[in-house]
Amino acid sequence: MTELDRAKLLAARYRAAVDRPYLASALYALTIVPSGRVPTMGVDRHWRCHVSPAFVEATPVPELAGVWIHEVAHLLRDHHGRAGRLAAELQRDHLRINIAQDCEINDDLLADGLALPAGRVAPGDFGLKAGLLFEEYLPHLPEYLIEFDCGSGAHGHSCDWEIGDGVPAVSPVEAEALRRHTAEAMRAHERSRGRLPAGWQRWAEQVLEPVVDWRTVLAGAVREAVAWAGGAVDYTYRRPSRRTAALRGVVLPSLRRPLPRVAIVIDTSGSMGEDDLAAALAEVTGVLREVGVRGNRVTVLACDADVHTVSRVTSAEQVELAGGGGTDMRVGVRAALAAPDRPHVVIVLTDGYTPWPEENPSCRLIGALIGHAPPAPPHWVETVRIGDRSAGGR
């Protein structure tokens, strides 16, 4: 085996860290493992970088610096963890997964002006647009591709060239700390020196402000509100108490447990797209069904600056999305609360560009905000950010 030119390899890492200082901590956390069995360079899930001495000898320092950043990007973006969450049928072809991951990384590296060795892949090589996640690229890649193997730190499958005996490793807890530190360094770099590639921007935002599945959040908020409403008890004489028979001439009321009611106020102003609204409404009503609130307990109000339709629905397809004018969701909330069957929970489905009630109404109010970076409602509105469903976080 050719002896590893460690000085050249370390010079390349130093160059990568100096040119992209926000990556320095992650780059220097990698342990170098020389190997004649690895084709070029690859990382395992323990942050060990396996390096081919022949590859180092044949590759100029600027390109080696690009490869250093490419490999650490697999680990920072938790590619092996994300690969493990793919559907079982997609996990079988780990080299195809690797190429999809390389597409996710390399579009950012090339946009950032980094030199990469010949043979590197990019989304354009497959007629795909830049800026997507590897999960989005994977279904569109052909089945038979040239082999790329960046190691288990990328696709999650252990390679025969990976060794671990006596070699320092980064624990999962340390890896998460490195990710957060790197994301914070990227944010500081943006503030002081300028913009990052879009993929790195989205990744840093996701690490520092993680996107929680809005369905889980909404289901939890509704479930809590429904449990609160369902737990309320009141007295009724419709069904006398069983103790009445023991007291001659006295009718005692029994306790009843009311069924929770939910109102959905839909923003149908001109700023809202009808297709997005229909899709979001279908998902919200699906969440309600999961929680146990069926159609006959759900009232839908279509509202811009006025309430146009009020209907009890059993499916999203039954809703008429009338409107298209100005925006004032206060009108819809007031109408919902003024109904004879006053709701226990009001969900406002909006892009957020609306006035809100000046004070907290006497029910649970949940703002389900659609779109990218919607304005925040008052602090007392329970907020769920549905976001742009066509995009994902890196």
Rank of each mutant, 00 (worst) to 15 (best):
A16P: 00
L27S: 09
L30Y: 02
T31N: 12
H46C: 02
W47F: 13
P53A: 05
L64T: 09
I69K: 12
H74D: 04
G81K: 09
L86G: 09
A87R: 14
L133W: 08
L133S: 13
E135N: 00
L141R: 07
I146F: 00
S152I: 05
S158E: 14
G164M: 02
G166N: 06
A169H: 12
A177F: 12
R180I: 15
H189I: 08
Q201S: 13
V212P: 01
V212A: 10
L218W: 05
R223K: 00
D234Y: 15
D234E: 14
S241L: 04
S241N: 13
T244F: 05
L247N: 09
V251I: 15
V251W: 07
R257T: 13
R257N: 04
P258Q: 04
I266C: 15
G270E: 04
D275W: 06
G286P: 06
L288S: 07
N296H: 15
V298F: 04
L301Y: 10
S311C: 07
R312S: 15
G323T: 07
G324M: 08
T327H: 04
L337F: 12
A338E: 11
A339Y: 10
V346T: 11
D351W: 00
G352F: 08
P355V: 11
W356V: 13
L369S: 07
I370P: 01
V384A: 03
V384G: 05
